[in-house]
């Protein structure tokens, strides 16, 4: 089980515990099967190259899922993911490590809920951030 974060313990600017992912072509095939997204640019190298790509590319939705994992891990068992947004600024290929990272950008108590907003992104080993977004998480508050 992941550590549970409480609203009071999290400061603006704090780092969200990173999640390291190691996507392989096998994972893209598994994801194609599980999601039903069989667009060939994600598993057929010849097809991808004929479409002007360097090789097969990672499904945007899989990168979205990596950031979803970052957010639900941070929320923990007693927190809740309320919003998740991602934008794709560039493509990523399998065989290269991607690290899901985040930073707390805002804290507020709204409607009795303890809300923590985070900037989130995926970073490759070169430091490129080809997927960026935000997560809004409700964290539990420490009792009284």
């Amino acid at each position: 089980m992941q550590q549970q974060f409480y609203y009071e313990d999290v400061e603006v600017g704090a780092e969200v515990p990173p999640v390291e992912k190691d996507p392989t072509t096998q994972q893209l095939v598994k994801y194609a099967g599980a999601s039903g997204d069989f667009y060939q640019i994600h598993y057929d190298k010849d097809y991808a190259q004929a479409n002007g790509l360097a090789g097969v590319i990672i499904h945007g939705a899989l990168k979205n899922a990596f950031l979803g994992q970052l957010a639900t891990d941070f929320a923990g068992e007693h927190g809740r993911l309320r919003k998740l947004s991602v934008q794709y600024r560039g493509m990523d290929q399998p065989g290269e490590k991607l690290i899901a990272k985040g930073r707390v950008s805002r804290k507020a108590v709204e409607g009795g809920e303890h809300i923590v907003e985070c900037e989130i992104w995926l970073e490759n080993t070169k430091g490129d951030k080809n997927t960026t977004g935000t997560a809004v998480i409700v964290l539990p508050a420490r009792p009284g």
Binding site: Y39, R80, R82, K83, Y88
Partner: peptide, 12 residues
């Protein structure tokens, strides 16, 4: 002929 995913906003 070609399509790319631009991104998503989810609310739960």
């Amino acid at each position: 002929h070609r399509v790319l995913d631009g991104g998503s906003e989810w609310e739960y």
